[in-house]
C-alpha cells in the first residue's frame, strides 16, 4: 500500500491544474531566484505528500538533463562580457555573463516545469487518472484505457526483452560490441521475437477483454472520484498564484 497523504487524496485533475500552474508560472518568472523558489515549492509539495524520497531518482535525472541543457546552450551565446574561455589559445568555448545568466534561467525553468510530473505520477493511481479524464474531461474511455494499458505493458516488455537477451547470450551471441553498426544489426534479432511475443500477448488481452464484456455499452467505475472542498481550495489557490505571477 502506498503511504496515503493529502496529496494522494486530491482529485487527479486538481494535481493536473497544479502542474499546469507551475508550468505557467515558470514561463512568466524571469530571475533565477524566483525560479529556484518555484522549484523549491514543487519539492515542498512533494515533501508534504510524503513522496520526496520516491521521486528523488526521477528528480536527479531531470536535474542532469537540465545541466546538459545548460552546457549545450552556454557556449552558443556570444553577447556580453566574456567571463572565461575554455581554450583561450584557439578562442573556442567562450562563456559570457549574459550567457551564464540566460542559461541558468532556462535550466531552472525546465527543471521547475518538469519536476511536477514525477510528483503527479507518484501520488496518482493510473486508473484514477483515467477515470478523471473520462468523467470530467469526457475523453472516450477506450482511448484512456489504451493509454493505461500501454503503460502497464512496458515493464512486461522489459522483462521479455531481458529473457530474449539471456536466451541469445546463452547461444553465444555477442550483443555488447562497441561498433555502432554491429549494435544496430544486433537489434533486429532482439526486436523480432519481442514483436512476436507482444502480438501474441495483445491477442490474449483482446480475447480476455472480449470475454469480460468490455465495450458492450456504458460502464461504471469502482472508485468514483469526488471533487471535494479541498480540491476546490487547492485548485483556486493554484490558479490565484499563477495569476499573481502573470500580473507581476
Amino acid at each position: 500500500m502506498p503511504p496515503a497523504s493529502f496529496l494522494h487524496n486530491l482529485h487527479p485533475l486538481t494535481k493536473v491544474v497544479w502542474s499546469l500552474a507551475v508550468v505557467t508560472a515558470a514561463f512568466f518568472l524571469q530571475g533565477p531566484l524566483p525560479l529556484l523558489l518555484l522549484w523549491a515549492s514543487v519539492l515542498a509539495v512533494a515533501g508534504a505528500g510524503k513522496v520526496l524520497r520516491q521521486v528523488l531518482p526521477a528528480l536527479k535525472g531531470l536535474a542532469l538533463l537540465a545541466g546538459l541543457f545548460f552546457l549545450f546552450q552556454v557556449f552558443l551565446i556570444r553577447e556580453g562580457n566574456t567571463v572565461f574561455t575554455l581554450f583561450p589559445a584557439k578562442g573556442i568555448g567562450q562563456v559570457t555573463d549574459v550567457g551564464l545568466y540566460a542559461c541558468t534561467v532556462l535550466a531552472l525553468r525546465m527543471l521547475a516545469m518538469t519536476s511536477t510530473i514525477p510528483v503527479l505520477l507518484a501520488t496518482t493511481n493510473p486508473k484514477d487518472m483515467v477515470v478523471a479524464f473520462v468523467e470530467k474531461l469526457k475523453v472516450p474511455y477506450l482511448y484512456a484505457f489504451m493509454l493505461v494499458t500501454s503503460l502497464r505493458f512496458i515493464p512486461i516488455l522489459q522483462e521479455q526483452l531481458d529473457l530474449v537477451l539471456q536466451a541469445q547470450r546463452a547461444r553465444g551471441r555477442d550483443l555488447e560490441g562497441r561498433n555502432f553498426i554491429k549494435r544496430v544489426k544486433a537489434v533486429v534479432p532482439l526486436a523480432l521475437p519481442l514483436l512476436l511475443v507482444s502480438i501474441r500477448r495483445s491477442r490474449t488481452l483482446a480475447i480476455s477483454l472480449e470475454t469480460r464484456g468490455f465495450g458492450s455499452g456504458p460502464r461504471t467505475h469502482l472508485r468514483p472520484l469526488a471533487f471535494r472542498p479541498a480540491d476546490i481550495a487547492a485548485t483556486a489557490a493554484c490558479l490565484l498564484l499563477a495569476f499573481l505571477v502573470i500580473l507581476l
Binding site: T204, G213, F214, S216, R219, L222
Partner: peptide, 29 residues
C-alpha cells in the same frame, strides 16, 4: 480464464481487476 496470467489481467491492483467485468456490466458501486 486463460493460460498467460500476465496478458489476461488489465488492472494494476487486485480489487480493480476483479471489478473490471462488473464495471463493463455498468453495475452500481
Amino acid at each position: 480464464v486463460f493460460q498467460d496470467p500476465e496478458a489476461q489481467l488489465v488492472a494494476t491492483d487486485v480489487e480493480e481487476e476483479v471489478a473490471f467485468g462488473l464495471e463493463n456490466q455498468a453495475l452500481p458501486r
